[in-house]
Amino acid sequence: MDLSEQITQLEADVQELDSLLETAERKRVQDLLKEELKRVEKELTTKRQQKEQQARREANPPAAPKAAYTVKITSYAWDQSEKFVKIYLALKNVHKIPSENVEVNFTQRSFSVLVKDLDGKNHQMTVHNLLYPIDEKDSYKKVKTDMVLIMCKKQSAKKWDCLTTVEKQSKEKDKPSMDESADPSEGLMSMLKKIYAEGDDEMKRTINKAWSESQEKKKYGDDTMHF
């Protein structure tokens, strides 16, 4: 029975109780009828209010929530202990959303993070090719004030030089190469040129000073560069 039918039935009950009350002669009967009339009138008022609220909802349906778009998390920090590699993700107000909105999944060589509906956006990060395997069952997340902490459990207690094998390969690629058949002094000069080109002002001043001193020493038979 919907609200309209319930209201119709209660209105009929009120009319009949009014009619009975008019014809009742004994006080006890009158009191009983009055009490029942009050109860039915109260219930009728409640049903009418519910009917009005229902009508307002149907006339003004709530706006559909806007679909959240997804952004990539590109900034993070990491450090390590003997047992864990720790990744820090700074996300303002992340501690204010439901904990189930922060999802982290682990495999032996990767982890992925999805933070849903934070300030109208989803925040996502995936890291593949971890430097060493992790124990996904004992890895976990912590949600702190304005931060998500990813705890990757090491399978072996060895120090990580970087987070991923890709970073390691990149670092190795950037190292100056040394040709064993080449003149050692030429290799040293190539390395110094690279350090000079990439160094800051202080580094450049140090190299210039060492170079000047080495040229002076060459006049006296000492061709070693001293730093």
Rank of each mutant, 00 (worst) to 15 (best):
K47T: 06
K171N: 06
P62V: 15
Q30M: 05
A77F: 06
A77Y: 10
V166N: 12
T164A: 08
K204M: 06
S99I: 07
Q49L: 10
D79Y: 10
V127E: 06
F84I: 09
D2F: 08
E16I: 03
L33T: 02
P62T: 13
K121R: 14
V115A: 00
Y88T: 10
T45A: 15
T46V: 09
E180D: 12
L44H: 07
T46G: 11
V115C: 02
K137M: 00
Y88M: 09
Q108C: 13
K27Q: 10
F106T: 08
K47A: 15
M1S: 14
M147E: 15
K137E: 05
E41W: 00
P61Y: 15
S177A: 11
H123D: 01
K173I: 05
L130S: 01
L149H: 03
Y220H: 15
E167G: 05
F111K: 10
M1H: 13
L114S: 04
K173W: 10
L149M: 10
T164D: 00
N60M: 05
V127A: 02
H95P: 00
M225N: 12
K51Y: 07
A24N: 12
L44P: 03
K38T: 02
P62I: 13
L37F: 09
I150S: 01
K204S: 05
V148Y: 02
S156A: 04
M203A: 11
A64F: 14
I207F: 03
H123E: 09
